[in-house]
Write a protein that binds this DNA or RNA. Structure first.
Lengths: 153, 153
DNA sequence: CGAGAAGGTTGTATTGGACAACTATCTGGG
DNA sequence: CCCAGATAGTTGTCCAATACAACCTTCTCG
């Protein structure tokens, strides 16, 4: 019948801590890289999925389409993504990361990864691997529960 | 010599996912409770630490003192915290959560905890406990690395 | 072919946060 | 004892990120 409420409070505390720390990492890296943090997530998603629509990005990103629209506009102006009309649907825009965009993303990732790697210097590869595994299970369950109910309700 | 960069990328991906999900949880709960999300973190910190200074809260919270100052002002207006002058230091303010503040916090927590508890219905108490433990180690290491260097540098 | 649905964009408001300037208080060396 | 610099907090100003609503365009289906 699942964990106790006490444990869940602990989980929430952990979430809160991660939230803060992610914010700090983002800000720290932002200071030395000329790319807006929110746009990074978008760029990363494009790198992972390849050419995508605005609406798809919004859905995956769990944000309003208008947000993605503006971010894409910004990234396009910076030359980090390109858009082209979708052949099969004249309403849709297909967005791709440019090679310059991918390079910029790599730079960001490098900086972030370095921070994390240094912070986890005491961990073994196995520790981290196991942690990531469990972390993944956790986020999957959470996501499934948070998103499905909306449709079912 | 610590984990590989690949593992660290996985960690970052996990962080990003948590970031989004926390955001969704917060928004969802916010819709049904009349308390600003950021203020909740503050209130929770006050409940955990007891009477605290603005500067302490800012430090723990990893934000600028001005942010805490405004949040406290808001919470005070809502009757959820009280401030009193510090005896030993005339510059400082001591902030405490009122009983009404604690109740409100509980309400929030209930709603959040319920979400998490439902999401983790398949987990055993031990699973969650172990997860929280490792999660704590992770955030501690990350926090230590992110904050100490500032002073040392 | 026309009505309604769906994809995107733009206008507007809100939240959360940073930084800088300012006031009030404290503290330590002359 | 007193003044200079440090420290606590507040307030003014700015910006990023997001949501929601109104709108235009294009699609789809009866």
């Amino acid at each position: 019948m699942g964990p106790t409420r006490e444990s869940c409070v602990d989980v929430l505390r952990g979430l809160h801590a991660v939230f803060q720390l992610k914010h700090v990492i983002t800000t720290r890296v932002w200071e030395e890289r000329d790319l807006h943090p929110a746009a990074v997530g978008l760029l990363a998603e494009l790198a992972r999925r390849g050419e995508s629509r605005v609406s798809e990005l919004a859905q995956v990103h769990l944000v309003d389409p208008s947000v993605v629209s503006r971010q894409v506009a910004q990234l396009e102006k910076a030359g980090l993504v390109e858009r082209r009309a979708c052949r099969s649907d004249g309403r849709a825009q297909l967005i791709t990361a440019t090679s310059r965009g991918l390079e910029t993303l790599d730079g960001w990732r490098e900086a972030q990864v370095t921070l994390v790697q240094e912070a986890l210097a005491d961990w073994t590869e196995e520790d981290v691997h196991e942690f990531v595994r469990q972390f993944g299970l956790f986020t999957d369950d959470l996501r499934a529960h948070l998103l499905v109910p909306e449709a079912v309700r």
